[in-house]
Amino acid sequence: MSQSALTALAKDELLGIDAAAADVRAAEAAALIRFGAELRPGPVGLAIVADFAEREVAQRLVSLLLSVCDVQASITTAPPTSSQREPRFEVLLGSGAVDVVRKLKLVTPAGNAVVGMPRHIISGNVAEVEGAWRGAFLARGSLTEPGRSTGLEVTSPCQEAALALVGLARRLSVSAKTKETRGVERVCLRDGEAIGVLLSRMGAHRARLEWDEKRAVLDAGVKTSQRLATFDDANTRRSAQAAAAAAARVERAMDILGDDVPEHLAEAGILRVEHRLASLEELGRLADPQMTKDAVAGRIRRLLSLADRRAAELGVPDTHAVDVEK
């Protein structure tokens, strides 16, 4: 299952949750707007413009706004562009936007926009905190395969909102951190157990089971690699060390390139990271569709070269700077 499929699995499950409490629905709606929308000047003073990758998430926000604030928003489809290959789904709310931001407390009593998260959510009950995290993940969240450098991630509109989401994670006994990549703030969870806990707290129980199963497979592979390290055969040890070094460089390359990594190179890179001890020929057989070992090697070389050039442009350590032993 690919990264996008894991994300889709979690989001589909979260979209099926029907929170009965009005304050929980309000917390989710506030997070959907805070992490997925902008407040813009409108014909009546203010407009809410949200955009999402999934139509179902846009429909979720429209439904919540109708339920919590008794206002009707509309959905439009933004077609693919040269920079955005997939369509986006925009939720537009003009008339009634002022009442919405006041009811959801996305503005202060003085009328200034809240830069983090509404204070009543930060100090609210646990169900509200879970609802807020659910909204943030639906708006801008992703879930990657175990073994990648980042497992669960939410893109934040600003540092204050990211820090607020970290604080809400702490309320759920989960440790999260912020990181900034090329001017974009993100909230990240790396610990596998913490990711499982958060998935359950948000309500994605099936996704949590899938995540735990994949972690178990990964752990079994790690134990196998540890046993290989005890073998006396020098060629086996050298092959394992070379594979580990290649996987570490690929992980660094994926971190450097972020969302800019070409899809066909990312597929080869993910295979290398997830199957650290496999030969290039074995990686080719695992690919879908299958590739020759030369094709796999070529894609990995291009991925590393692209990342090294980007690192030089950014003035950051390239893929040769990784700690292979970690």
Rank of each mutant, 00 (worst) to 15 (best):
L46A: 15
G167Q: 02
P146L: 06
E251R: 03
V114R: 12
V184E: 14
V57I: 01
K223L: 06
T155N: 04
P80L: 14
L228N: 01
Q72D: 06
L304M: 11
R88I: 00
A245N: 05
A37N: 03
D294R: 08
L209F: 06
A244K: 05
V71M: 00
F35A: 08
A321V: 13
I300S: 00
F52E: 02
K11P: 11
A73Y: 04
V107T: 03
E180H: 11
I256H: 13
D232A: 14
E90H: 09
L304D: 07
F89V: 07
A161M: 06
L168V: 08
H275S: 07
V322A: 02
A240F: 07
M117L: 14
E267K: 01
A47I: 00
M291V: 07
I270F: 05
L286F: 01
I121T: 10
R208C: 02
R170M: 05
K223M: 09
R310C: 04
P157L: 04
M202W: 00
E213S: 12
A204F: 03
D18T: 15
F231K: 11
E130G: 13
A297L: 02
L65P: 04
S175D: 15
G16Y: 05
R215P: 00
G42Y: 00
E193M: 02
V68D: 15
L163Y: 07
T76H: 08
R299S: 05
V71P: 03
A207D: 13
F52S: 01
S4I: 10
R302V: 05
L314I: 08
D288F: 02
E90P: 01
V114P: 15
A5L: 09
E213V: 11
D23H: 15
R237D: 03
H205C: 12
S123W: 00
A97S: 11
V68R: 10
K179N: 03
D99Y: 02
A161N: 07
S279D: 02
L66V: 13
A287Q: 09
A216M: 01
P80K: 11
Q72A: 13
A27G: 09
V222K: 11
P289M: 10
L152R: 13
K105M: 07
